[in-house]
């Protein structure tokens, strides 16, 4: 599939989700696994807009996917600030309501739903690769 560019705005998320659904259908994932991939990509794109660009309308998100053997490989590229995933603490999941933090779930979801999450920076471009294995 040729790469598709979207404006870095939250109203792009639903359009990106449509492409993700197409990709997971083509790859043959079941409904729940497909939903997980949709979630991971949505969280990744929201993070790009909020953290890499620091808000809406500051840059683009380039979406691409390919299927290789048993793997669906999705890439998201942006030209915002690069991101150090180690700087984000893991959310505390099993704690009482009062102690629940309201942030940090996005990155956690990406790692839970995908088999591999990779961050690379090439020049001014950040490349996030999300890999889902079938079966």
């Amino acid at each position: 599939m040729p790469a598709v560019k979207f404006p870095g705005r939250y109203d792009s998320l639903a359009k990106i989700a449509d492409l993700v659904k197409k990709a997971t259908q083509e790859f043959g994932l079941d409904r729940l696994a497909a939903y997980g991939v949709e979630t991971a990509v949505d969280e990744a794109c929201s993070n790009i807009i909020e953290h890499a660009y620091g808000g809406e309308g500051k840059g683009e998100i380039e979406f691409n996917y390919r299927i290789k053997d048993n793997f669906l490989i999705i890439t998201l590229q942006d030209t915002g600030k690069s991101f150090n995933p180690k700087s984000v603490p893991k959310p505390k999941i099993n704690v009482p309501l009062k102690q629940r933090q309201e942030t940090g779930l996005g990155l956690y979801f990406m790692h839970q739903w995908m088999d591999e999450v990779k961050y690379d920076t090439a020049g001014k471009t950040n490349v996030l690769t999300l890999i889902k294995r079938k079966g």
């Binding site: 989700a17 949709e38 979630t39 949505d42 969280e43 929201s46 309501l97 629940r100 309201e102 996005g106």
Partner: peptide, 19 residues
């Protein structure tokens, strides 16, 4: 048909406020 962490934040924030 879809909820992201942004939606879940509304759920948990509302639960905290109401309780």
């Amino acid at each position: 048909d879809f909820i992201s962490s942004a939606g879940l934040r509304v759920l948990i924030g509302t639960q905290k406020t109401c309780k």
